[in-house]
Design a protein around this nucleic acid. Structure first.
Lengths: 239, 239
DNA sequence: CATACTGTGTACGCTAGCGCACGGAAGCGA
DNA sequence: TCGCTTCCGTGCGCTAGCGTACACAGTATG
């Protein structure tokens, strides 16, 4: 196992004790996630959970007419497939790779067994789930009350927090799908940010130039979510 | 304990086995919930969880400027205070009584102990939490894509499902707070429903006259949520 | 080098919902 | 009975975002 591909780049796996990690490690399977890959389909039984390391996965709620909205985003701090240990087996939402990279996956049954056996793992995952719930709630209120400009800033910052670089590979069309708005709306808002010197983008590549500038424009929702993630997931890395 | 006030009117308590229920029963404390009571305040440590019997509680996300949005609603099918067993202790959202009635409350520590001890209770609560997550996700997408008319229908139906009667005590002002819209907007949408003969209302009392009519107007979000609740919470009542 | 496609810019009319302001009617309390 | 508050109706101008249409520049493909 190279350093480049270390499962413990995922914060949840990193938070496990040596013993607990050794239990799971042999079953962790490296997976390359490509942009647009679907990890979870609405109503389909999942066979694996995914622990992203340097990839980002979006949880989307898709409606009959194809309109969609991102309800949460998962990076190295989290896990994709919570319904496996929550007991529902399936969910009505989808999980799409938003930023290509790596993840480690684990057969659902193995995770469930360990979830029931180890109260440490259980508490860890439940705290993470609560953070996810906060993100979803804040997304709902943000959708309702804030301008597209602010939501775009929030989205960029949430993505940035989950990336090793300050460049994200993402077309305006895709961002529009995530935010549940028109592509033209994203063009306009992104144009404002570019003219303000906060970002620069070119054909699917967005570079963040002035992060503090984005933070000055974003609505409170970003801070609320970040604070709650920090509060709930600030465990120490054991050996 | 009279039949009128039976804790097992709450579906979660009703789903427990006789033994498990007997464990908790001595500690269940009857509570009268009045319209507008706050059960959970943002960031405050909660000392109790609440099992509504014939009351309805709204989970709200409130922002700095006072604007709010309901992210989920809890009735006899659920429990208020999931962050106690999820491990976070607090949440950034509020829980407000939306329809007066009864609930049974339990000290948080007792629930936590039992949650860790009994895997049945644990699975029950986690499945419920997953249903709640679905409701929140669907609320987010509904906020984004559907008209106020449709959202009002969804809200009425979700409330109706949790009420023994077809009349709800609720001003348009309060509904506006829940949906995160203007009061005037609710007046207009409710007026349409009234003119169509689906509901009738008068100074804070709304009576539903034609439920199928509402179901014909509501967006798909209502059905998605209801189906998921049925799927996840359709346990048999043990003795 | 021609062609097609993908990603972005722009414009224009349209509508839902907002903010505000006001009026009126029902109920409640002194 | 009077006065006050709560609740609902209505109107008006405004704006953000929608739907649509089209232009154009990179990029890939033949």
């Amino acid at each position: 196992m190279t350093l480049q591909h270390d499962p413990r780049q995922n914060h949840l796996l990193a938070a496990l004790s040596r013993d607990e990690y050794q239990c799971l490690a042999p079953h962790l399977e490296w997976a390359e996630l490509k942009l647009g890959d679907s990890l979870v389909e609405s109503g389909k039984v999942m066979h694996h959970v995914y622990f992203p390391t340097d990839s980002i996965v979006s949880l989307l709620c898709v409606m009959e007419d194809g309109d969609s909205t991102e309800i949460a985003v998962v990076g190295a701090e989290g896990i994709v497939g919570i319904s496996l240990f929550m007991g529902g087996e399936t969910t009505p939402s989808r999980a799409i790779v938003q930023s290509a990279g790596s993840a480690y996956r684990l057969r659902g049954q193995l995770l469930k067994d360990e979830f029931d056996r180890s109260s440490t793992l259980q508490h860890l995952l439940l705290r993470y789930t609560q953070a996810l719930i906060t993100q979803m709630a804040q997304t709902a209120v943000c959708n309702r009350h804030h301008s597209l400009d602010q939501q775009l800033c929030r989205w960029l910052l949430l993505s940035l927090d989950r990336l090793p670089t300050n460049e994200l590979v993402m077309t305006q069309e895709l961002i529009a799908n995530m935010l549940g708005v028109r592509r033209e709306g994203v063009t306009e808002s992104a144009g404002k940010l570019q003219r303000a010197g906060l970002i620069s983008y070119h054909r699917g590549h967005i570079r963040i130039l002035d992060r503090p500038g984005l933070e000055a424009r974003v609505c409170e929702c970003y801070a609320v979510v970040k604070k709650e993630y920090d509060r709930l997931l600030s465990y120490h890395r054991p050996g």
